[in-house]
Amino acid sequence: MSTLTGSLVGQLRVVRYAAATSAAEFRQTYTWRSWAIGWLGRMLSQVTFFALIGVMLGSPERTRYLVVGNAVMACVIETMTVVTNGVRERQEGTFPLLAASPATLGTVLFGRGLYQPVSGAVTALVTLFVLAPAFGVRPRAAQVPALALLIVVTALSTYGVGLVLSAVVIGLPGARNVVSNTAYLLMMAICGVQVPVDFWPPWVQAVSEVLPLTHALAAIRELMAGHATTDVARSLGLALLTGVLWLLLASVAVRLVRERGRRTGSFDYGA
């Protein structure tokens, strides 16, 4: 086994064990009832609120636009809660051990937060297939597998954005919730969730182009509208590309945090 292959296998093993810890934490945080009523109920209510704006406007097209956009956004909102994970790890005192271990800190943090995009994807799928039909949005049976794949891509691609911000707020623990909320509200505003991207001035559109949600949501809308497969594939490709770039940026950001923590001895139980 080559050194590169051995390193890759080792990193995947770290992700596996970190993800197992993540799943155990999720089970301790939620019961099926508290998740379904407390979290899913909240997301369904939020999507209903925005859908009713379209109903009040008397526009089925606008209602459809808001339902689809906010159903997908439900996935992103949950995924972006990963922003607080780095601060939590620091407060729980695991950073000194992780910084001293041979495992890459970024790999551990990636695995530790995986339940968030997974749960977010489930939330979005339930919203899209259970609530959306009440507002006239009924995906065709043939579209279901592709829609499920696109929702998973949305969750994982925006996960990279959350990991970058998680690294940033490790040194600013008091700002973690502000950063998390600001990030998803910004994406909700400019990525085509509530209004088309071309509603905004060119410089805002340019910002939206580097965010995976813009392209993932465009692919979902194109698929549901019956556009050509090439259009969907192009948007999907851009979502994957920007998602990978954000994950690479997250890896660099976490590495810088780790090196600074080792150099300054700042991996304490910071509040």
Score class of each variant (00 low, 15 high):
162 G>M: 12
58 G>L: 06
36 A>S: 13
90 R>Q: 13
201 P>L: 13
8 L>H: 01
45 S>N: 08
226 G>N: 08
81 T>K: 05
187 M>S: 13
85 N>E: 15
13 R>K: 06
101 S>N: 02
92 E>A: 08
239 A>D: 02
138 R>W: 10
201 P>V: 14
208 S>H: 10
142 A>T: 09
11 Q>Y: 14
200 W>K: 05
223 L>D: 09
216 A>P: 01
154 T>C: 05
176 R>F: 09
162 G>A: 09
264 T>V: 14
252 V>S: 00
149 L>F: 03
248 L>P: 07
61 E>T: 11
41 G>V: 04
54 G>W: 05
37 I>D: 04
124 A>S: 15
173 P>N: 00
200 W>I: 12
33 R>A: 15
91 Q>G: 10
219 A>L: 03
57 L>I: 08
187 M>R: 03
202 P>I: 06
257 V>T: 04
108 V>E: 07
270 G>E: 15
21 T>P: 00
155 A>K: 05
181 N>Y: 14
134 A>Q: 11
150 L>D: 12
260 R>K: 11
261 G>F: 06
3 T>R: 04
246 W>P: 01
137 V>T: 00
48 T>K: 02
224 M>W: 01
256 L>D: 06
121 A>D: 09
30 Y>T: 02
217 L>W: 14
159 Y>K: 07
234 R>D: 08
144 V>L: 07
148 A>I: 15
153 V>D: 12
257 V>M: 11
77 I>R: 06
144 V>E: 11
234 R>N: 10
47 V>P: 01
144 V>F: 10
9 V>W: 00
175 A>L: 15
74 A>T: 05
168 V>P: 02
23 A>W: 14
113 G>L: 00
32 W>I: 12
192 G>E: 13
267 F>D: 15
200 W>G: 07
225 A>M: 00
192 G>N: 08
126 V>D: 09
73 M>Q: 12
31 T>S: 13
165 L>C: 04
170 I>T: 11
160 G>V: 10
12 L>W: 06
99 A>T: 03
216 A>Y: 07
67 V>Y: 00
26 F>S: 11
5 T>C: 01
234 R>K: 07
225 A>G: 11
132 A>D: 08
51 A>L: 05
215 H>W: 15
191 C>N: 13
39 W>Q: 05
118 V>Y: 00
102 P>I: 02
212 P>T: 12
200 W>S: 09
231 D>Y: 07
253 A>S: 02
251 S>K: 03
185 L>E: 12
84 T>G: 06
226 G>C: 04
261 G>W: 12
114 L>A: 12
49 F>A: 14
15 V>R: 06
260 R>T: 13
158 T>M: 08
109 L>H: 10
174 G>W: 02
36 A>F: 09
72 V>T: 04
8 L>Q: 08
266 S>C: 09
123 T>V: 14
271 A>G: 15
44 L>Y: 03
157 S>E: 08
211 L>A: 08
7 S>E: 12
220 I>K: 00
11 Q>A: 14
15 V>A: 08
12 L>C: 14
243 G>R: 01
61 E>P: 02
180 S>Q: 13
18 A>S: 12
146 A>K: 01
106 G>H: 02
165 L>Q: 06
229 T>Y: 05
267 F>L: 15
25 E>G: 14
96 P>Q: 00
87 V>D: 11
148 A>G: 07
92 E>K: 03
185 L>R: 07
14 V>L: 01
38 G>D: 01
250 A>T: 01
99 A>W: 14
38 G>F: 03
210 V>H: 05
